Computed example of a mutant assay.
Amino acid sequence: MKAQQRRNYSFDTRSVMLFAALSLGGVGALQAQTSSPGKTASPSEVPYSYGPGTGNPSKAATTAFQRADADKDGKLSEKEAAQLPAISQRFKDLDADHNGTLSPTEFEKGLLS
């Protein structure tokens, strides 16, 4: 039996082959991400998380509020708001009803201002 010989390609050949493989892989990934022709994806179909500048500040505010609300009582105490520096610095100004907590509405107004 004859031993199999390993092909030794030059560096240039290997570089071109690697570039071609990466390019084709990138095209395949791009093709998989695009929606069907003629159809525009609605915001609810976009697989990205919400955040500042995504066009849905209400969803971003709700998510941030729920994460900060440690005791899940539906309001943020001053201690809970300390996790969010932008909110904690203006806590007293945002607390419109002066009850010592922020409601989701007060919190959202604080994010938008």
Results as ranks from 00 to 15, higher is better:
59 K>D: 15
107 F>D: 10
38 G>A: 07
29 A>M: 09
18 L>K: 02
74 G>C: 08
93 D>C: 00
67 R>P: 07
15 S>W: 04
65 F>V: 02
108 E>A: 15
43 P>Y: 03
40 T>M: 05
39 K>R: 05
26 G>S: 10
56 N>L: 09
89 Q>Y: 07
26 G>K: 02
14 R>S: 13
96 A>V: 13
83 Q>T: 02
92 K>L: 01
42 S>K: 11
91 F>A: 00
38 G>S: 08
24 L>N: 05
109 K>D: 04
25 G>I: 03
14 R>K: 11
70 A>I: 11
60 A>T: 15
107 F>I: 08
19 F>I: 10
4 Q>C: 04
25 G>Q: 03
64 A>N: 11
85 P>A: 02
19 F>L: 14
85 P>W: 06
84 L>I: 09
7 R>M: 07
74 G>S: 03
81 A>P: 02
76 L>W: 08
10 S>H: 02
13 T>G: 01
27 V>F: 09
106 E>Q: 14
89 Q>E: 11
87 I>E: 01
25 G>E: 02
106 E>K: 13
50 Y>V: 15
101 T>P: 00
45 E>P: 04
33 Q>S: 11
28 G>S: 12
81 A>Y: 06
75 K>W: 08
111 L>M: 14
48 Y>D: 10
8 N>I: 14
29 A>W: 09
41 A>Y: 06
91 F>G: 00
